[in-house]
Design a protein around this nucleic acid. Structure first.
Lengths: 219, 219
DNA sequence: ATGCAGTCGTTGGGATACCAAACTTGTCCA
DNA sequence: TGGACAAGTTTGGTATCCCAACGACTGCAT
């Protein structure tokens, strides 16, 4: 019918992806209502896939739903972002430290290739490609860490991550930071990573806080 | 109708709780099938609440569901338990360090009261009460940490935590460990906590691995 | 015995219609 | 101004029906 996405894809998955993109890309504002019937009509599906999608997004922490009323896109406070940053620092440090301790030559090669794609995209000012490569960089690093539970945990948090910290102003600076991370992982330099990762995150953190302040000021 | 649980409780929540307890308490074995229709009939509800419950439990990581087939209770491997332990160590260290840095006198009083309840229950060999108090101990500590995102993260993991590490053999030893944690938190002794928490977790870890090995041997 | 292909029953994903409970909202009145 | 009340929305749940996909079984050939 619509013939979008991979063959045999479940409707609920498709709807989830659409709504998630709407939220992450800002097409649905924080606080805006998610009304099952309307969305169902809009996307030409029944309420069922929409319900599942909303539940999934609640699980991913970007939607809040109270019983028997509409769900809304989550509104984050300055405090939430700070809390999130603290947690993220711990998780990502763990991630890169494990990656440094356990990586294989083959894995490093893939990580480096992805970094180079990111760098090229950043130099060409291709925002979308750079964003995808950067996100892949983290995915590969998660693989190198060789800890599936850690992967699951990151999976739970990745949507709000992309939402809150998705848009990084300075693509080249970000690529450069990834180069430094890459080299530390390759040389298994755990001590350096323990100071590097928090510093890497701090820049995106500041940008997210700034964006939120701007939004609050204009409200 | 059934008039169980709190008033106005959603069916899906009730079903989720029932299934979760079945799994955590071992009434449903790892690998056993969760068939929507059967469970719906069994609990006298329609398929919808059951579907939602299963999705929730998938989110909590204790059920695996592939499209268009039954879901099954998750089977954990030795490797999963080890991975989980690594992640848990990082999270709980973060939790107790934050609690040490940010606790209030009032919060410490509640933590101490809960510890004393746990100790009393352990001395009386009341397994159920000790288990509940121990779990409350962690909940209160999470509150003291003053980081809602960390709370959410723990919420995602708490079910498999209770499932895999729920039964601790030596109640008195566990209470004693909680006493040491409590005192370190109270005196804001962060350095001690950084070595204490991993040690605290190691004992439960070993017990879980032993249990799994036994189960595998008898299969 | 073993491997394999086709068949058939089972099961989840989804659509539709309907209802009750409860949450919002707007209005009216003190 | 503030609160109680009424009306309209919206979700949660039930009941059916259908279909595609999956799994299990059967029987055949080797």
């Amino acid at each position: 019918m619509a013939e979008v996405g991979s063959a045999g894809e479940l409707e609920s998955v498709r709807v989830t992806r659409i709504l998630r993109d709407d939220i992450v890309l800002g097409r649905r504002a924080p606080g805006s209502r998610l009304i099952e019937r309307d969305i169902a009509t809009e996307l030409n599906v029944s309420r069922l896939p929409v319900r599942e999608a909303i539940r999934t997004l609640v699980g991913e922490g970007v939607v809040v739903a109270r019983p028997r009323t509409w769900a809304v896109v989550r509104e984050f406070t300055q405090n939430d972002i700070q809390d999130f940053g603290e947690v993220r620092e711990a998780i990502e440090t763990l991630l890169f430290v494990f990656a440094a301790q356990r990586h294989t030559p083959e894995g490093i090669a893939r990580l480096r290739a992805t970094y180079q794609r990111e760098l090229a995209a950043a130099q060409a000012h291709d925002v979308e490609a750079a964003r995808i490569a950067a996100s892949e960089f983290h995915e590969i690093a998660a693989g190198l860490a060789g800890n599936e539970m850690l992967g699951e945990l990151i999976g739970v948090f990745v949507t709000r991550l992309q939402w809150l910290f998705g848009q990084h102003d300075d693509l080249l600076a970000m690529a450069e930071e990834h180069r430094i991370l890459l080299e530390a992982v390759e040389s298994r330099d755990v001590d350096t990573l323990r100071v590097l990762v928090p510093r890497h995150l701090a820049s995106g953190q500041a940008a997210a806080e700034r964006r939120l302040r701007d939004r609050e000021a204009s409200a």
